[in-house]
Amino acid sequence: MEEKVHFYSDCLKLVGTFYTPDNRKDGERLPTVIGIHGGSGTSTANALKIIGQRLTDAGYAFLTFYHRGFGDSEGIRGRSIWQNRLRDIQDSITYAQQRPEVDPERIGLIGLSIGGAYAVYTAGVDERVKCAVEVGGMGDGERRFRTRMPYYDFMALQDQIKEDRIHRVLTGESKRRPYRGNEYLGPEHQKLREKQKDKETYDKQGYPLENTDNLMSFKPESVVHQIAPRAVMFVNAERDAIVPVDEARSMYAKAGEPKKLMVISGSGHGEVYPANNPEVFNSIMKESLEWYARHL
């Protein structure tokens, strides 16, 4: 069963979808997983719907929503500030706990791409999260940029950010670029974007450079040790040109038990999505469902 829902975070209306199994018994309170979308706000929407279907088939309730500024939610379009997203997720937990279908003591998270990093950070600072799964997330925003681009390009990016900080103070707005204009892509992802460009429309306004500036200070790795004794699972692709697999390995090394690391050999960032590589996606769902069954 699928229900359109909404809740509020910092007085902004956030819109989402709540899924429950068709065979749920009256009065039954279910373990519940909250799905967190990626940075574009669009590319993971269909994947999260399929994840929701898989989880409800396994007896879980599932909630996914658009962060402020994305989808049908209120907020400045395309603006992504990690402190705000953290509040959105924590408020989504509060909302889920009020629903009669949800067992408030059994809340899990799953996040895709940057959403995976938010899942880790939220679990690190909010003990209501009993089990988290991150797929393709990073541990340190600045390190992730430094390791993915030539140093000259990194210095040029820093210059652009410095100029944009002044521009924001004087005008109240951040300069906007296409979503992938804020990224440094490897050949694998360039080919994937060409394949997808007719299937997906990004926000025509572009995305604020402020997003990249803010992401530099985002370090889920700094709180990952606080998740234990609650459970966390890291899933990253071996040949990921967007989020190097060493990000997951570094977080895993700093996390306490119970923890698990799944490295998908020969695959890239986009292949974790069902539309791109169903075999890889199915393997991730199999491991995730086993992890939730054990810890949630």
Rank of each mutant, 00 (worst) to 15 (best):
G172P: 06
S80R: 14
I242Q: 15
L14S: 00
I284K: 07
A96Y: 01
K175N: 12
P229E: 12
G115T: 06
I166N: 06
A119W: 04
V125I: 15
G206I: 06
Y118S: 09
M262D: 09
S217K: 11
L170G: 03
T212N: 02
I50A: 13
R148H: 09
D240L: 10
M262R: 10
I161G: 00
Y151W: 14
D246M: 12
G59I: 02
E127H: 12
C131A: 13
T122Y: 09
H67S: 03
V133L: 07
L112W: 12
V135R: 12
S40P: 14
E2G: 02
E2W: 01
D198F: 08
R77F: 01
G78H: 00
P178T: 11
I242A: 15
I36K: 07
H225C: 08
D203Y: 13
E142S: 03
A293W: 07
A255Y: 11
N277T: 04
L209V: 07
P104S: 13
N211Y: 03
F218T: 04
K25I: 04
Y202M: 13
F18Y: 05
Y118M: 13
G38C: 13
I93F: 05
A58M: 02
W291Q: 01
P178Y: 12
I34W: 00
E238R: 04
W291Y: 05
W82K: 09
G39Q: 02
H225N: 11
V224D: 09
M149S: 01
S40E: 05
G52Y: 10
G41W: 00
Y202R: 09
I284A: 04
V263L: 10
V263P: 03
N84I: 08
K204L: 14
Y151I: 12
P274H: 03
A47M: 13
K191W: 09
Y202Q: 08
T20L: 08
T94S: 15
D164A: 02
G75N: 05
L157Q: 06
Y292G: 05
N214I: 06
T201Y: 10
P150M: 10
R54Y: 14
P31T: 06
